[in-house]
Nucleic acid binder design. Structure first.
Length: 720
DNA sequence: TTGTTCCAGCTTTTT
DNA sequence: GCTGGAACAA
């Protein structure tokens, strides 16, 4: 058998991981060290050399994108179909298992997955029904609480009435929420994972079946697993230790949403005979970038220890720009982008990375005004748009009448005279009878309880759903969607909507039909589900790509978080300021600060050729002018790796007088951002310097006296 | 039912 | 200082 193709492209460490005998494996894969390659080749190795049948392979990722990529690359490498392999996200695979074993999992066959927006709506309704004040019990916070409980594997009943008032109340809502979900057949994201864990834990036969079936379990981004995900993995591999995990503790940036970096450390305890392999050779960045990143991350206490290296040479130093304010920062970045493009570079090779989404605006405006195409990541995705969710709500009701969240969403969309009063009546009865809103509505219509007008409207609505459901029974999925769009009145609603927003919504509805048509092609239907059910699950589990044309050559704008896993030749990390990055809220908690530092490490290691760090000496935040300090992360980079750039100032890099930036070189007696002291005004920071010789003057922001322009020949400033 | 006004909130995000 | 959502008035 020819397996050179599997092991030949690998370096020693990668090869050791790929060809290791079957046992628990922990691969610590640094940024850009070929993590996915190892995973893909490991699976290929097992199939081709170890003779493990494809259907015995389980590979788990966090994102659909990662799962798709893995599939593709295995197919490419081995030239085989990956159809029978279980490759997917934790949530996707959990969904599949729950569909297969709905009864054992105590779920109705018609259960539907809801996304976090749906979940929030349900919680809001419960809060209202329990007569709780939304101000004192913010639904967002409750949602967070419930999800955190589920991530830890805890049910409402697990904690007794011991805790304080706050906790008791939270648990009461959690309990009511669980009941609502059970009654309405709705399953949130965290529930998918928790259910599957319980399903396997409580059904030994089932567990045994899957333990035998999956001869090899692979996990990507292991540092991002939460408690329940790891518990499930342990259950599946119990006694066999056939678990192959790849991760990087230094890139753990999702602790705030339940990821447990400790899982990596615990892995070593739980799997006594495991083998640990570190991948430290980096194929992405220059030596300077790696050295700087290594230095920064080395400041963290809680880590396994790892040092990236490359044999690709040092490359350019890291550039640091101290902007006067956020506008100047944007101006500078866009200037550098123009220069890059002028030298023949592509815009798509460039990323602007920021800590928080709010920072994108200044860059968007500047890019817009210079006519530079750009693309902002984040924001609403296709299946999250209101018009799409409305159409889906009709479809969901057709699939499951008891889906209260969908019922409420569209009972009066488009308006059909069922206002707050009518909905309140339905809710009340539903609560009283402990039935779904649909059932309560049926009762109301029967009892002729509400006003005749409301009753007619309600009966009409229910009839609409029934008719849609029956009439479309035999049709192709996309035809169903088409019919729903029309008969629900949504098309008419958006056609007649004022302004130009309606047009885009109509286009999206058409796009939904398209999505349904294309969906037929990808058959992942092993469980004999109806196409509609599958499509709805798909919509919830894969909210779709961000908008924007991948085809255009665009500058990429995104948060540091969403940059994980990506790479760009030219990277700008902007807003490198205390309070922004690291975020204010994380500054004095060591655990959170270390996560911020890892985020910085993630950002730096995105850069292949050139990395720019920028900060503003003055920045408007919430309408107030701030004079932040530069980020401590900048100071954690060895100065000799940094080259300071001054638009009108000098290159300020000890021991290197060469101007590589193309900007005019001019020297002043003080530097921008420098702390200075004045006999009368006290301590301040230099904001701007202009003029030369006798005309040289500086704008200083004094702590007490505020911002002042001073002639440097007269003012006796001293450097601090 | 719709448009206006007011007010809180304001890291990071996938599924 | 801006935004999105809720409350309110017409």
């Amino acid at each position: 058998m020819d397996f050179t193709k599997i092991i030949e492209p690998l370096n020693d460490a990668q090869r050791a991981a790929v060809t290791a005998p079957n046992r628990a494996m922990l691969v610590l894969a640094g940024a850009g060290s070929g993590k996915t390659r190892v995973l893909v080749h490991r699976i290929a190795w097992q199939i081709q050399v170890e003779g493990i049948p494809a259907h015995s392979i389980l590979a788990v990722t966090f994102t659909n994108k990662a799962a798709r990529e893995m599939r593709q690359r295995i197919e490419q490498l081995l030239n085989i179909s990956t159809h029978t392999m279980w490759i997917g996200t934790f949530h996707g695979l959990a969904h599949r298992l729950l569909r297969r074993h709905a009864n054992a999992a105590k779920l109705p066959d018609t259960f539907q997955v809801m996304d976090s927006a749906d979940q929030l709506r349900v919680i809001k309704r419960i809060v209202a029904a329990m007569n709780l004040d939304e101000g004192r019990w913010p639904p967002k916070q409750i949602q967070w609480f419930i999800n955190a409980q589920k991530d830890e594997g805890k049910r409402a009943r697990h904690q007794l009435e011991s805790g304080d008032f706050y906790l008791r109340q939270m648990l009461a809502v959690y309990k009511a929420y669980e009941e609502t979900c059970d009654r309405t057949g709705l399953v949130d994201f965290a529930e998918l994972l928790l259910r599957v864990h319980e399903l396997m834990r409580d059904n030994p036969d089932l567990l045994d079946f899957y333990q035998r079936r999956f001869l090899q379990v692979h996990v990507d981004e292991f540092q991002d697993t939460n408690t329940i995900q790891y518990a499930w993995l342990r259950l599946l591999t119990e006694g066999k230790d056939n678990l192959f995990v790849v991760g990087d503790d230094d890139q753990s940036i999702y602790g705030w949403r339940g990821a447990r970096i400790e899982n990596i450390f615990n892995f070593q305890k739980h799997y006594k005979n495991h083998e640990l392999i570190k991948l430290e050779q980096n194929y992405r960045s220059t030596g300077n970038i790696l050295n700087a990143a290594n230095k920064v991350i080395s400041m963290n206490e809680a880590r396994m220890g790892k040092e990236l290296w490359t044999n690709a040479g040092d490359g350019e130093p890291i550039s640091l720009y101290a902007a006067f304010n956020e506008l100047d920062e944007a101006y500078f970045v866009v200037e550098r982008i123009k220069a890059w493009v002028n030298e023949g570079g592509l815009r798509s090779e460039i990323a602007i990375l920021y800590r928080s989404n709010a920072q994108s605006r200044q860059f968007e405006e500047k890019l817009m005004s210079t006519g530079t195409p750009y693309r902002v990541y984040g924001g609403l995705r296709f299946f999250e748009r209101a018009e799409i969710k409305n159409a889906l709500a009709y479809l969901r009701l057709m699939a499951n009448r008891h889906d209260d969240a969908s019922f409420e969403r569209v009972i009066n969309t488009p308006a059909r005279g069922l206002g707050a009063k009518a909905i309140e009546d339905i809710r009340l009865l539903a609560k009283e009878q402990e039935v779904s809103l649909w059932q309560a509505s049926a009762l109301l219509v029967e009892q002729k309880a509400p006003s005749p007008r409301a009753r007619t409207a309600l009966a009409g609505f229910m009839d609409l759903i029934e008719r849609l459901s029956q009439e479309t029974g035999e049709l192709e999925l996309y035809q169903k969607v088409e019919l729903v769009n029309e008969h629900s009145g949504l098309v008419y609603l958006y056609q007649t909507e004022k302004g130009d927003r309606g047009e885009e919504k109509l286009e999206n509805l058409v796009e939904l039909i398209n999505a349904a048509r294309l969906f037929d092609a990808e058959q992942e239907n092993e469980e004999n589900l109806s196409e509609l059910d599958l499509f709805l699950a798909h919509a919830a589990l894969e909210a779709g790509d961000m908008q924007g044309d991948d085809f255009d050559d665009c500058v990429q704008l995104m948060t540091l978080h969403s940059a994980k896993g990506l790479e760009f030749k030219l990277v700008f990390m902007v807003g490198m300021e205390e309070g922004l990055f690291p975020a204010q809220q994380s500054a004095d908690d060591i655990i959170r600060l270390e996560e911020e530092r890892r985020l910085c490490y993630v950002g730096m290691t995105r850069a292949m050729r050139q990395l720019y760090l920028t900060y503003a000496e003055s920045r408007r935040i919430y309408g107030r002018e701030n004079y932040p300090k530069s980020s401590r992360f900048i100071r954690e980079i060895p100065p000799e790796l940094i080259q300071e750039v001054r638009l009108r100032g000098s290159i300020n890099r000890p021991g290197n007088p060469i101007n590589t930036t193309g900007f005019k070189v001019q020297s002043h007696r003080f530097n921008l951002g420098q702390r200075v002291g004045h006999a009368k005004f006290g301590e301040g920071v230099v904001l701007q310097i202009e003029g030369e010789g006798a005309q040289e003057r500086a704008q200083i922001n004094f702590k007490q006296a505020g911002v002042k322009w001073l002639m440097l020949n007269y003012a006796q400033l001293e450097a601090l």
